[in-house]
């Protein structure tokens, strides 16, 4: 049995009600959504742009844009994160376009791998290999990059990626296989060998 005071208290924030409350101007609800999504959006942006500074800048812009347009947000049963990913994708596309205008991206461009990647056993060699892998990913088309990053760093299912990319699940599945094939080609171009592709924890060396 609830008392009058308890009944007057606002409903606790959950994933289900936070979006509706945030769109009505509830700043606490928006903070809740921010906390739920900031890590994943930063992670996604970082893997698309390759530098901490740019990832921080773009992530900030994603949330400021979301904050500015939250009153227009219409809940269509799609997760709020999908909306944020789309904003991030558009801002990253603008960032790449502006970057390309400023200077042609050099193949030797340094990719700023942050220390916070949780791989205490990582060696210098592995870091270089990760850098090359990221470079290979960035040589792919925008939609392939987006798909691979969502798949491998966010571990999203094809259905979830389909919502974010506004495609059918079948189209995502097909694009995924094409993306993997293209990635292998890019990796070969950058000098990877098919078998000893990436050495993780010395597994490949021991074979």
């Amino acid at each position: 049995m609830k008392t009058k005071d308890q009944m007057a208290e606002p409903e606790a924030l959950t994933d289900d009600n936070a979006t509706a409350r945030a769109s009505q101007g509830d700043s606490e609800a928006f903070s809740y959504l921010y906390e739920q999504n900031v890590n994943r959006i930063y992670n996604y942006v970082f893997y698309r742009v390759g530098s901490e500074a740019d990832a921080e800048d773009i992530t900030s812009r994603v949330f400021f844009r979301a904050f500015g347009h939250i009153s227009n947000y219409v809940d269509k049963g799609v997760p709020f994160s999908a909306w944020l990913y789309r904003i991030a994708h558009n801002l990253i596309a603008n960032w790449h376009r502006d970057n390309f205008r400023r200077h042609e991206v050099s193949l030797d461009e340094h990719i700023d791998l942050p220390q916070r990647i949780e791989q205490p056993e990582a060696t210098m060699e592995q870091t270089q290999e990760v850098e090359l892998l990221l470079r290979a990913i960035r040589n792919l088309t925008e939609d392939r990059q987006q798909l691979l990053v969502l798949k491998f760093t966010e571990h999203l299912s094809n259905a979830e990626i389909a919502v974010i990319m506004n495609k059918s699940e079948g189209a995502v599945k097909s694009l995924y296989h094409r993306s993997l094939a293209s990635l292998k080609v890019e990796m070969k171009k950058l000098g990877f060998q098919e078998e000893g592709l990436i050495v993780v924890g010395g597994e490949e060396e021991s074979e």
């Binding site: 930063y42 893997y47 942050p114 691979l148 491998f152 760093t153 571990h155 993997l180 592709l197």
Partner: peptide
């Protein structure tokens, strides 16, 4: 290939 990619591409957290 997929399992290697998953192992290598660790999630990155902001500070």
């Amino acid at each position: 290939f997929e399992s290697k990619m998953t192992t290598v591409l660790k999630p990155v957290k902001p500070s």
